[in-house]
Design a protein around this nucleic acid. Structure first.
Lengths: 161, 161
DNA sequence: GCTGAAAAATGATAGAA
DNA sequence: TTCTATCATTTTTCAGC
């Protein structure tokens, strides 16, 4: 499943194109990678079975959906034990506002990325769904002015056979 | 382009399925939404032209790619002026380790999500690519133990015609 | 919003470089 | 391994209703 993944420049081209557009046709993907369509199918299947490709997702604009206010919630859990960590994560993921949850090192244990419908919705989320919980010692809320997606994630080194 | 987007329960089903798997066939998507395939095509085209759907991406496992160490960099820029903000963001996005950049309210101006190949790579990134820059006053580095993707992002209210 | 026929893409196969 | 070529099947498209 999770091999060290020896990737060459063809895999790199495939990964670059697929991260940019998950719905690219196999024909176009093969052309972008400079290989035959049948070979391209094999390559993608291999990347999938190696665990490099884990899935695909359609990207959505939260503002266009009616969720114009995004924020980061820094959450401190007390005590910081596994019995409390797992339920907290599940509860955070169960909120419709939650986009992602990160378990971090440092004074703040969790970072929760949320997309709220309004300041009132954000306030309710923080007070009723997070601060109100027994294990939550502290929530620090920060608004997101703007965000940018990084380019395609690529392997640090490419084997050149 | 960016209309208030009046979405009904069919759009909601489409958005849910598409966020879960961008490569779902239109046939299966139509079945999931309970409409005819041709109607489904129209709906998706409308969601795209309304700006709700902005694109698609294949999901990659950074660890399988050789980037097992993810971190959040909290960056303070001094002075916090637009002439310095834009170049900083461009430089952050130009790094192969960068997954996302957030411009935040609060004492830390930016949050940069990165995927490094090793602790040495992370150290180099922080010291040589961020701290070394004139406008960067402070970088605080936090490791990511684990992360979870939220469920599909859905509109807060659904019009019921 | 639906139906159905035409067009295109896919996935699989076999054989050769 | 990878490529070329082929083909049945599935999927998308685009009329018209």
């Amino acid at each position: 499943m999770t091999a060290p993944a020896q990737l060459d420049s063809v895999d790199l081209a495939i990964l670059r194109a697929l991260q940019n557009d998950a719905r690219i046709t196999n024909r176009d993907l093969a052309a972008a990678a400079g290989i035959a369509p049948s070979t391209c199918l094999d390559r993608v299947a291999r990347l999938r079975s190696c665990g490099v490709i884990t899935g695909s997702a359609t990207k959505i604009d939260p503002a266009a959906l009616g969720r114009p206010l995004q924020a980061m919630l820094f959450v401190r859990v007390q005590p910081h034990r596994r019995e409390l960590v797992d339920p907290f994560v599940q509860h955070a993921l169960a909120q419709p506002e939650t986009r992602a949850v990160f378990h971090l090192t440092g004074p703040d244990d969790f970072l929760v990325h949320v997309a709220a419908t309004s300041a009132a919705d954000l306030q309710r989320l923080v007070l009723d769904e997070f601060t109100a919980r027994q294990e939550v010692a502290l929530v620090h809320t920060t608004l997101i002015f703007q965000q940018w997606d990084g380019g395609p994630l690529l392997p640090p080194r490419v084997s050149r056979p």
